[in-house]
Design a protein around this nucleic acid. Structure first.
Lengths: 162, 162
DNA sequence: TCAAGATTGATGCAGCTGCATTAAGTAAGT
DNA sequence: ACTTACTTAATGCAGCTGCATCAATCTTGA
């Protein structure tokens, strides 16, 4: 008798859930121990720092990070509270606004990349050859959205965008 | 110049985060649309139903599911509130207790497996050959904890245990 | 036997998430 | 110009998570 989801598919599902959870936890813990805020903050700061003149519309940020609207709204709140970004009014569209990264925001992003990249190396890089990492990318890509070109996406700094 | 985490490792990291998130979301949505509770409930009910005489110590459940103690405690609260499990006192150790699955609990677990297995098939099985699923398992296993034998773990019903 | 330490489970608090709704502004058709 | 529909962003509410702590009980070793 043939199973509907094969045992192989089910095993892959279990591993995908467990391993991601363990690796994410490990990386987040490393960042936290180094005294840094959560990864989502890094992602947002990275997107902002990459934007021309360091500012974006919240809607843009939302699309880049693939997180819901309300989540973006509150993340911006927190960044603004900590002085890492500022809200600016948008004169073209009075509903909207711009979010601009501040100098402390840029500095934090750079400092975090040090700890973040070390964590990626520790929990992924050191455990997989480059060739195997590519194989893993290929298999994962078949499961979901294309995440853009392998080489291009990680060209400068990596952002997860959960 | 060599990067500390290679672009390949970074790309794998990004995909691991994104793809897991998308696939989990998709599966959870399918379950929710079918009117079922979250996956964590299923995991707990499955563990309980597998236990001899359908009861376990919370500590056991905690170890099986790999979730923190307080999380287990509250999950049991919710199952008990919904009549899917009952707490029983433990006479050997008066600090402790037993949690026993109820008949409605067993029924729900079985019904959920229908929707759950369909979702795994839809989001994993249909996108990967069995051989590729095994390759994926192998690569993921190198990143983390061993999750037991591929064939054995998914023998009857699959549990993620985030 | 009894004090020190470990184990078991619950809970108050803060933060984050999703859902639904609201408010305000823009765009488009009539 | 005016109604209708869409877009942009914020927010109240409920639920879940992690952290720290607590209370109760068990275990160990002097």
């Amino acid at each position: 008798m043939k199973r509907k989801p094969s045992t192989e598919a089910t095993a892959a599902w279990i591993r995908l859930m467990r391993v991601q959870s363990r690796v994410l936890d490990a990386v987040e813990q490393d960042l936290k121990k180094a005294g840094f805020p959560p990864l989502a903050w890094y992602d947002a700061l990275l997107e902002l720092s990459r934007a021309p003149s360091g500012e974006m519309r919240p809607v843009e940020l939302e699309k880049q990070m693939l997180i819901p609207q309300y989540s973006t709204s509150r993340l911006i709140d927190r960044l603004v509270d900590e002085g890492l970004a500022v809200r600016r009014e948008c004169k073209m569209d009075k509903r909207g606004q711009f979010v601009e990264i501040t100098e402390p925001g840029r500095e934090l992003q750079k400092k975090m990349w040090g700890a973040y990249s070390a964590a990626i190396e520790k929990h992924i890089g050191s455990k997989l050859s480059d060739a195997d990492a590519l194989k893993l990318c290929g298999l994962l890509d078949r499961l979901g959205c294309s995440c853009g070109d392998v080489k291009a996406a990680a060209a400068k700094e990596g952002a997860p965008a959960r």
